[in-house]
Amino acid sequence: MTDVRVGVVFRPQSPPEELREAVVAADQAGIDELWVWEDCFFEGGLTTAAAALAWSERITVGIGLLPVPLRNPALAAMEIATLARTFPNRFSPALGHGVLDWMGQVGARVESPMTLLREYTDAVRRLLQGETLTVSGRYVHLDDVGLAWPPPVAPPVVIGARGPKTVALAGEVGDGVLLDAWLVTRDGGVDTEYLATESARVREAAAAAGRPAPRVITFAEIEPETPALGDRARELVAAIAAAGADTVVLQCTSEHPNPGPLIAALAG
Rank of each mutant, 00 (worst) to 15 (best):
160 G>T: 15
159 I>D: 05
162 R>T: 06
172 E>Q: 13
160 G>I: 12
188 G>I: 00
161 A>Q: 10
161 A>H: 13
173 V>E: 02
195 L>A: 09
135 V>D: 04
179 L>H: 07
179 L>Q: 11
158 V>H: 12
135 V>T: 15
154 A>H: 11
177 V>S: 12
167 V>F: 00
161 A>L: 05
189 G>D: 05
181 A>D: 03
156 P>K: 14
153 V>Y: 03
147 L>C: 07
185 T>C: 04
143 D>W: 00
154 A>M: 05
192 T>L: 06
184 V>D: 11
157 V>D: 11
183 L>S: 09
194 Y>M: 13
189 G>S: 08
147 L>W: 07
137 G>L: 02
152 P>Y: 02
159 I>F: 09
163 G>N: 06
137 G>I: 07
149 W>C: 06
136 S>E: 14
171 G>P: 05
153 V>F: 01
200 A>C: 06
191 D>W: 11
138 R>N: 13
196 A>R: 14
141 H>I: 01
189 G>R: 07
185 T>G: 05
157 V>L: 14
196 A>H: 12
197 T>R: 13
186 R>W: 03
175 D>E: 12
158 V>I: 15
149 W>Y: 14
156 P>S: 07
162 R>M: 04
150 P>E: 14
193 E>T: 03
176 G>F: 09
197 T>E: 15
148 A>I: 12
